[in-house]
Amino acid sequence: MLRFDGVEVRQGDFVMRADLALTPDAVTAVIGPSGSGKSTLLATAAGFVTPERGEVRIGGEPVTRLAPADRPVSIVFQDGNLFPHLDIATNLALGRDPGGRVAAYRDEIETALARVGLEGLGSRRPGELSGGQQSRAALARAFLRHRPVVLLDEPFAALGPALRREMLALTAEIFADATVLIVTHAPEDARAIAAETIFVDGGVARSPAPTAALLDDPPPSLRAYL
């Protein structure tokens, strides 16, 4: 579903290389030390970073030249996923229509909110929700977009362990039909949600490997990181 064909991204002195393909309709985790290029990999898939070489493909189609919004992907960031000045319903509506017309998508929004356990909270502002609820709202919007690829950039890093597990379970549940790429710095998150894991180190993203095997018998550089 999501492929990186000989992709090479250059940002100043830093270079990130990726030549790999994700298993369709499954969750793949991305782990690695800070500054190794995890977020760059995600940003390349999302379209915020344009590679110098290579091609990003989704469903076989090249998307390297497409603007972020034109790619069949949804993205959830580490923070700042919700506009604090708009209520939750409008924030969700923006997932379907950049104009944010709530009335046109009222039913879908309610369904998505129910799906993440936020029934009836559409009129609240993000500031009136707890951290966990904000994460749920962000997931609800990604869900609402119905895009085949979902990119998650350390989305639950600010939450406690129990809440994080809950969120991972929710993610796995609502995106069961999508190809999901999730960046995390916690190996246990990868174990909990992803059958396969990409290890990024020193600017090189390795091909996905079965998570349990990788973490149980890590290569030397991953061992050092763990």
């Binding site: 603007a67 972020p68 034109d70 960031f77 000045h85 708009l86 950049p98």
Partner: peptide
């Protein structure tokens, strides 16, 4: 800085971006 990428990812340009992001944040 805080919301540019989010708006980009949602395809908010032109009027929508002005109304939903710029004006409220710059109020």
């Amino acid at each position: 800085r805080d919301y540019g990428r989010l708006a980009d990812s949602l395809g908010m340009g032109g009027w929508a971006r002005l109304r939903r992001l710029t004006l409220p944040r710059l109020r």
